[in-house]
Design a protein around this nucleic acid. Structure first.
Length: 479
RNA sequence: CGAGGUGUGGCUCAGUUUGGUAGAGCGCUACGUUCGGGACGUAGAGGCCGCGUGUUCGAAUCACGUCACCUCGACCA
């Protein structure tokens, strides 16, 4: 009880105020700090290390599918940004402009990239001539700037880190294939690496990317029942190619337009990890993206042999491929336990004189708080096994939460009732009209999250207007 | 951009109503005792009270202006 009180002082309980809980975690787990520019955050070592693990694993998956990395400039001349009409209209309200070079006003102002479609198009126009030059499957890791009005750490900042893939293909079929391939890759990454289950599907026209023919998305459900768009993949068809004049000569010596795609994931994923897995003790990291997978807490560390044993354990775990650290600061053990939980390290290994004598150590799981006694001799095999189990368990727990917060509705009254009172996804049929989406937004505040690939028929009629239904849609409130 | 809130040592805040020259707790530093769920003692360091102008003998406190940040909405990864 006394322990609980101390925790409450430090971190707001999730059920009491989810937004404050989130803010507490990002700062107490030392993931970020606010900077002197509104909406621009300092990503601290604990947060950046997570991003590095995301990058490393996602990048490896990209490369297995033939992706090559490049780097494009961060500035876009205004004339270039304006070439595709829908695109510029979509982004104009939130771009930052550079108007001076040193003391001289620039002849043409430059926008700080909010996304790089136009730069890639301008580049592809020059390097693609023949069908032999296709496909181009390029990606870049960089930051982009969008002058958001409301900002939240990791979820919506004015500058954020991401990867953006941009491809050019000979045929529409090939572009569509790549679009779906990347979306599926994103979904697998979220599930296997981040332990976040997602719904894969297509965005409605209202929600699709500026300039895209079709936008596909993966949607995750946060602990508070709100949805988070966690990755997108767009098929541009030949719209950008026509606006930028990206043409190649095919085998029959005919001039053709290329078909393009783009796809991205961002540091927002760190926000998703926090809001899907975290609890009132703090952050909870899936082992595969935990910068520290095991922290060793020596007990009575000034007793002879304790620190030496901790160092030995560390060496052995490092050799077994575990990311491990020894906490030999002069804090008391209880403090270190709480800190491990706040920072989300998947396991804690306690080792003191009693353990050393018995040839064991105490292993505590972050996901279940379970305490296990493990023989020191078995540490190299046991810790990886436990980490594996934690990774699986976290995915299952998140999936169970998502499934138990997904509802079906077949009548409008029931639909509104559910959206308003039960946080989560509501599945309902839709006629395909923008007007119904707008009305639902108006009535409930919910938006269409996606039309899932796994279509089902809950009824024949649109939930809103009663006209014949065209698709099953996941609805929800979103971040 | 609309609504609300907040600016005082690193952090959380008191002090502002009734102007008199800045406080507490936590954290930090040193030494000692401690160590299996957030330790304690002693001694220290640290603040042009967000910024500007005005009123006044005197401003953290009053007036006017300005800036920044947070939360919730509308828009977005």
């Amino acid at each position: 009880m006394a322990d609980e009180k101390k925790q409450v002082e430090q971190i707001t309980s999730m059920s009491e105020d989810f937004a404050q809980w989130y803010t507490d975690i990002v700062s107490k787990a030392e993931l970020m700090d606010y900077s002197s520019v509104k909406g621009c955050m300092i990503i601290k070592p604990a947060g950046y290390a997570i991003w590095e693990l995301i990058q490393k694993q996602l990048d490896a998956m990209f490369k297995e599918t033939g992706v090559e990395n490049v780097y494009m400039p961060m500035f876009i001349p205004e004339s270039l940004l304006e070439k595709e009409k829908d695109h510029v209209e979509g982004f104009a309200p939130e771009v930052a402009w550079v108007t001076y070079g040193g003391l001289e006003p620039l002849e043409e102002r430059l926008c700080v990239r909010p996304t790089s479609e136009t730069l890639f198009c301008d580049f592809y126009k020059n390097i693609i001539q023949s069908y032999r030059d296709l496909p181009k499957v390029y990606n870049q890791w960089c930051s982009v700037v969008r002058w958001e009005k409301t900002t939240r750490p990791f979820l919506r900042s004015r500058e954020f880190l991401w990867q953006e893939g941009h491809t050019a293909h000979a045929t529409a079929e090939e572009a569509q294939e790549r679009t779906e391939q990347m979306l599926n890759l994103y979904a697998d990454f979220c599930e296997q690496v981040l332990a976040i289950p997602v719904v894969r599907g297509r965005k409605t026209d209202k929600e699709k990317f500026a300039g895209a023919e079709a936008t596909y998305t993966i949607e995750a459900l946060m602990h508070d029942g709100k949805a988070l768009q966690s990755g997108t993949s767009h098929n541009f068809g030949d719209g950008f190619a026509k606006a930028f004049g990206i043409q190649y000569t095919d085998k029959e010596n005919k001039l053709q337009y290329v078909h393009q795609t783009s796809w991205g994931m961002t540091t927002r994923l760190i926000g998703a990890i926090i809001m899907v897995h975290g609890d009132d003790s703090g952050l909870k990291l899936p082992p595969r993206v935990a910068p520290v997978q095991a922290v060793i807490v020596p007990i009575m560390q000034n007793k002879e042999g304790v620190l030496e044993k901790a160092a030995e354990l560390k060496d052995r775990l490092v050799k077994a491929g575990i990311r491990v650290k020894v906490d030999d600061t002069d804090k008391r053990p209880g403090f270190k336990f709480s800190e491990q939980e706040m920072r989300g390290f998947p396991v804690r290994i306690e080792c003191g004189p009693k353990d050393i004598e018995a040839g064991t150590c105490v292993v505590v799981r972050r996901d279940t708080h379970e305490k296990l006694t493990v023989a020191i001799d078995a540490i190299e095999t046991e810790i990886p096994r436990i980490l594996d189990d934690i990774q699986k368990n976290m995915l299952e727990t998140a999936r169970a939460h998502r499934d138990s917060h997904t509802y079906d509705a077949t009548e409008y009254g029931e639909f509104c009732e559910t959206i308003n009172n039960k946080p989560g996804f509501v599945r309902a049929m839709w006629c395909g009209d923008r007007a119904c989406e707008d009305k639902i937004k108006e009535d409930t505040g919910a938006t269409s999250r996606c039309m899932p690939f796994a279509q089902e028929k809950l009824s024949d009629k649109c939930i809103c207007c009663g006209k014949p239904a065209k698709a099953l849609v996941y609805w929800g409130r979103a971040y």
